[in-house]
Every structure is written in C-alpha cells, then in structure tokens.
C-alpha cells in the first residue's frame, strides 16, 4: 500500500510494518499484555469454569442439616436440562418470538430508512430523532416504561381503548410474548434504521438516474435497485438480531414483576438465571449456559454459512 521505499531492513523481511530493533521485541507484548491477561481470566477461564462446574452437583448430607457436599455427577446436569420440559419450551418460545420480532422490526426499519432516503419526508430531522430516541433509553428502562403502559390502572393507552369498549389484557399468558416483542421492536428499530439509512445513502446516485431514463418509477427503483443494493447490510442486521433473540433476558425479566404470566424460566437466559440464584444450583445453571452457548454458536455458523452460500449462488 505504501509507496515510500524501506531503506533499512525492508529487503530482508517482506512485511510492511515491523519492529525497528531487536531490543524492542518485547514492546508489542507489553502493549497487548493487559488485554491478554483480562481475556484469559474473564473470557477463557469462565468457559472452562462452566464446563468443570457443570460436571458436579451439590448434594446435602444426611437429613439436610449436615451441610452440602460437591460430588462428581458426569453429564447428569445436561440430562436434567434436556428432560426439563420448561427449559426446552423456553427455546421454542424465543424462537417464536424471533420469528415475529425480527421480520417486523426489519420491515419497519427498512421501510423507514427507504422513506428517509427518498425526498418524500418533510421534517426529516425531527422524525429521525423520534425513531432513534428509544435507542438512547436502556432496554431495562424501556421495559419498565412499557410495563406501566400495559397496566390498565395507569395506562392511557388502555384507558383510551376502554372508552371505545375494548379492554385487551396485554399481560395475559397468550399475549404477553407479543407485549415483549413490542418492547424490543420499539427499542431496536431506530439503530437498524440508521444503519440501513447510511447503507442507502452510500449507493451511487447515478444508478437511479440511469433507471429513470429507462422509465422506472420511484417505487420500482426502491424495489429493484435500492433493496438489492442494501441486501448485505440487511442480512447482517438480521443475523445479529437472530442471535440477540436467543439471549432474550432483560425485557421479560423486568415485565415479570407486573404479571404472573411470565414464569421464572420463560427464556433460556431466565432459566439460567433462576437456576443459578433462586434454585441455588449453579451447576445446573452452568450446564444450561453451555447448552445455550452451543446452540447460539451453531445457529451463527449455519447462518453465516448460508449467507456465504447464497452469495456464491448469485455469482458474486
């Protein structure tokens, strides 16, 4: 990349950037040492601690007054997690949630980004601010706010509907999942819109002029040119949204305090939390965390792979 010729050691080693003198060989290691130590202690070690922890179980001695003893149980905790129908159901629940949340949010974000990119919106700054504002509010606080708006006693929304003769229960067992979906759509549409909007702004405008000369309308241009052009950005945002849905924790955990329709193992992460704290069985919690980690990893790998496959199919 650089055109400036190397004068001294450049010929011996082909690398572009390198250490100047032998005595300074230690310097780069000093720079990365803090990160490496922290990485080893707080990212690598926890994985091994969890693996080790998941193979044991705390069992009480005698009649229960004797204290507890930690015994090796092999894969028992994993078997317990797999036969725990509530834990398995929690995966189904977040999958169902993701099937609705991701498409609705992405359609919403894409449509808004397209409109902001067109010349159709007056007062663009204000509307962009409105759409983006929720992202500046922590997910937990957003869930708190919507929690109030879901309660008939304080919600102006439900009060208004009641005046019209409709009184939906947004916190019932059948509806609460969609109430959670609404909170995360509200929170994350803004950031996705911004990312897709900057992708749209990056398309060379000449392409549209050429299409117009060929007689294409604005809608046609949006569907046939803009959408395919931002497809890679859309795919990546979808990918990270799907991974995010598996980790669902904050919103249901917060809403749990205003409704009994959310059990303590409503999502995989909530089950992990409940097992580790309420159930006082961090061994089971570790086994569940490993299962969730493996499932997440498998899904990301499959999605990444299918993405690169479909790219090849198009002939990129």
């Amino acid at each position: 990349m650089t055109t400036v010729p190397r004068l001294v050691e450049g010929a011996q080693r082909p690398r572009r950037r390198k250490n100047a003198a032998g005595g300074k060989r230690l310097v780069p290691y000093l720079f990365i040492a803090p990160f490496l130590v922290l990485f080893a202690v707080f990212l690598v070690t926890p994985i091994f601690v969890a693996l080790w922890n998941s193979l044991f179980s705390a069992q009480s001695l005698g009649l229960g007054f004797g204290g507890v003893q930690t015994v090796f149980v092999g894969l028992d905790n994993f078997i317990r997690a797999f036969v725990d129908s509530d834990f398995i159901a929690s995966f189904g629940r977040v999958l169902l949630y993701g099937l609705v949340q991701v498409p609705v949010m992405m359609i919403f974000a894409t449509a808004l980004a397209m409109l902001f990119d067109s010349a159709l919106v007056r007062g663009k700054r204000f509307f962009q601010f409105a759409v983006f504002l929720p992202y500046a509010i922590p997910g937990v606080i957003a869930a708190l706010l919507w929690g109030f708006l879901y309660q008939p006693a304080v919600s102006p929304l439900l009060q208004g509907l009641q005046n019209l003769g409709i009184s939906p229960d947004l916190l019932a067992p059948g509806t609460v999942l969609w109430s959670i979906t609404n909170v995360s759509i509200w929170s994350y549409t803004g950031i996705n819109m911004i990312i897709l909007f900057s992708a749209l702004q990056a398309i060379p405008r000449e392409m549209f002029e050429a299409a117009r000369l060929d007689g294409a309308g604005e809608l046609r241009i949006a569907i046939s040119i803009k959408l395919p052009m931002i497809a890679p950005a859309v795919m990546l945002t979808i990918l990270s949204s799907i991974i995010g849905t598996l980790q669902l924790f904050n919103e249901p955990q917060v809403l749990k305090s205003v409704t009994s329709s959310i059990s303590s193992d409503y999502t995989p992460n909530m089950a992990i939390y409940a097992a580790s704290t309420l159930g006082k069985d961090s061994h089971l919690g570790s086994a569940m965390a490993i299962i969730l980690g493996v499932v997440t990893l498998l899904i990301s790998v499959v999605l990444l792979k299918s993405r690169s496959d479909s790219k090849e199919g198009v002939g990129d």
């Binding site: 070690t45 601690v49 924790f249 580790s276 961090s282 990301s300």
Partner: peptide, 17 residues
C-alpha cells in the same frame, strides 16, 4: 472468534468464576 460469544451467555460462567 470471541466476538461470536454473546455477553449474556458468558454472564453465568463469569458469575461462577
């Protein structure tokens, strides 16, 4: 590689540690 590990998956193991 470690960017693929979501923060919340590592939360429980970190807690145990």
């Amino acid at each position: 590689g470690s960017m693929l590990i979501p923060g919340t998956v590592i939360a429980q193991p970190t807690y145990v540690l």
